[in-house]
Design a protein around this nucleic acid. Structure first.
Ligand code: FES
Ligand code: FES
Lengths: 142, 142
DNA sequence: TCATATTCAGAGTTCTTTATCCTAAATTAG
DNA sequence: CTAATTTAGGATAAAGAACTCTGAATATGA
């Protein structure tokens, strides 16, 4: 079981932050990304394709081709990626799965969850991916 | 996509807290639970069966049969249910999906996530399900 | 120019989760 | 004892997520 984000979304987040480390405009192949990040090659291809379709990445075919961010890294947050891949359900839904989540008929943990949800949101938007990428202390990001 | 807990786990949490409202020892049928909580009947049956197997619930067949908590509601927390159904992965895994999550090679949001993860854990253990059930402001719980 | 190697694009497949169905076994009430 | 009710449990179907295979586009260099 994946936690809050789907596997696809996790891979997307890893890949996009990896791209943020590259000089602006430089193309990076699926091969390099898949190898460095340990993500299944073809699956990653489909994910990046999807991110291109949604306007977050730009792609180019052929040798020397690959993917790059469609806009400056400082203008992208992790939230943009989550929004594009998983949607914004986690900002609206009841953590216990009840059909409605509002102050009207709150479940027992509604208040507590509201705070945590805000925390998650702020974790995703408080830094742009250029900063995020630099703060990664992961061997994958070398 | 469900958020942090699987659908199955959400249903389990709703059902167990519902049972916590009943007088200790009283049996409640799948029928009543499914109807009140709006959970698919047969699916809920499997979930409750599983919770019985894991020792959280006790069951009895025949008319007047049903399910009840296997121990006093004050001794059960939401975490017990999550643990039984989804496991404790969320307390250990990297929120960005990296294979390792530790202070050794932290991802960019590791610290922030550590705090949120603790918050989620405390949300699940700070009250027993008797309290949780009483605090539900849900029409389902009547 | 054109063959070839490289890379993305998109359809297709497998696996897991969710949900349904059906029959058997246990238990109660009459 | 019989009929009604309820859980137990296997089998199956539908939906969604995860992953794979094949083909189209493109740059390079012979
Ligand atoms: S109603 Fe449950 S989190 Fe809002
Ligand atoms: S390494 Fe990412 S949350 Fe710990």
């Amino acid at each position: 079981m994946s936690l809050i984000f789907s596997r696809q979304c996790e891979y997307a987040l890893q890949a996009v932050t990896y791209l943020a480390l590259k000089p602006e405009g430089e193309m990076t192949s699926i091969k390099e990304l898949a190898k460095k990040l340990g993500i299944p090659y073809h699956f990653l291809g489909k994910i990046l394709q999807d991110l291109s379709y949604k306007g977050l990445l730009a792609s180019q075919k052929g040798p020397t081709g690959g993917f790059r961010l469609a806009m400056p890294a400082k203008d992208i947050t992790l939230f943009h990626v989550v929004e594009a891949v998983d949607g914004v359900g986690f900002t609206k839904n009841c953590v216990l799965g009840f059909p409605e989540c509002s102050g009207q008929n709150p479940c027992a943990v509604h208040e507590k969850w509201a705070g945590l949800r805000d925390g998650i949101y702020s974790m995703l938007v408080s830094k742009n991916i250029a900063q995020v990428a630099r703060e990664m202390r992961k061997p994958e990001y070398v």
